[in-house]
């Protein structure tokens, strides 16, 4: 991919009804990088992702895709540049894996441009990348949670967009599959030059895989930057309201957060925490 597409938000305010969730937030997604959004429950991280993906119209402010207001662009055109895996997509009853992943080709098709060989190739590549090729003929309802999640990711991949936004792509997955999915997303960034934005729950995996981390608190950006530069015990305290030690991840040398609770804590740390 040659020219990178730019995604940014300016004074973005998002909410449902009268309730404001994301408040005058501005940020720029670094192109060609893996950006991870973290934060406590209800801090607005999923809402922000939905806003960036034009799934939720802003109550104020603007999301820009290549300098154009994304909500004013034809949604079909956006869909060829930006793919989204929403949090709770619905698999139609009885649909097969290949059929579901094939729906990712929708924005590339039209009434006059039906299914072609390139579509089969894109579906096969997406299935192969997510290690779900063996499941191609199976019904999605019969799969395990982990398999299903990988199939949904395959659908977003089949869309073949340079920007890919994923809302908690690792929920329902065992730790090994979580790592596989994050490795896969990293491959997309490093080998194919894609821009990936994901909301993640697991702070340590976020710190390990993110090129750029965005920590959110109460609808605002509390900190953003490379994990090694911004993730500190103070930040964890302010974002999650929890004491923690931050040490060196022995595998990746990224910051590793070790929570400090009320129990099972060595006396020295306990005294320090109190």
């Amino acid at each position: 991919m040659s020219v990178h597409h730019q995604l940014s938000a300016a004074d973005l305010t998002l909410g449902y009804g009268d309730r404001t969730i994301v408040d005058k937030l501005s940020l720029a997604i670094p192109p060609g990088k893996f950006t991870v959004i973290v934060g406590a429950n209800a801090c607005g991280k999923s809402t922000l992702l939905r806003g960036l993906a034009r799934l939720l119209p802003p109550s104020a402010g603007t999301v820009y895709l290549d300098g154009r207001a994304i909500h004013q662009m034809p949604t079909r055109e956006v869909a060829t540049l930006l793919g989204v895996l929403p949090q709770t997509p619905v698999a139609p009853d009885g649909i097969t894996v290949a059929d579901l992943v094939g729906r990712g080709r929708y924005p590339h098709q039209g009434w006059f441009r039906q299914w072609v060989a390139a579509d089969d190739a894109a579906v096969a590549a997406a299935l192969q990348a997510t290690d779900t090729l063996d499941l191609a003929g199976r019904a999605v309802d019969e799969l395990s949670g982990g398999q299903r999640q990988r199939v949904w990711i395959a659908m977003a991949l089949a869309q073949e967009t340079e920007l890919l936004l994923l809302d908690e792509p690792t929920t329902f997955l065992d730790i090994n599959h979580q790592v596989e999915v994050l490795d896969l997303l990293t491959d997309l960034v490093q080998q194919r030059g894609r821009t990936v934005v994901a909301v993640l729950h697991d702070l340590n995996l976020a710190c390990r895989y993110a090129d750029h981390i965005v920590a959110m608190r109460e609808g605002k950006v509390a900190a953003s930057g490379a994990p090694a530069e911004v993730v500190t015990a103070e930040l964890v305290k302010s974002v999650f309201g929890m004491d923690a030690e931050v040490c060196d991840d022995p595998v990746s040398h990224s910051p590793m957060i070790v929570p400090v609770g009320r129990h099972r804590v060595k006396p020295r740390l306990k005294a320090a925490a109190e």
């Binding site: 799934l55 079909r76 869909a79 793919g83 990712g104 929708y106």
Partner: peptide
């Protein structure tokens, strides 16, 4: 019927795939 195929997957997924 083309958009019906994406609407089946929920409003967010349908919008994500470029359906009005």
């Amino acid at each position: 019927s083309r958009s019906l195929r994406t609407l089946q997957m929920g409003d967010d997924a349908a919008t994500a795939l470029g359906t009005r």
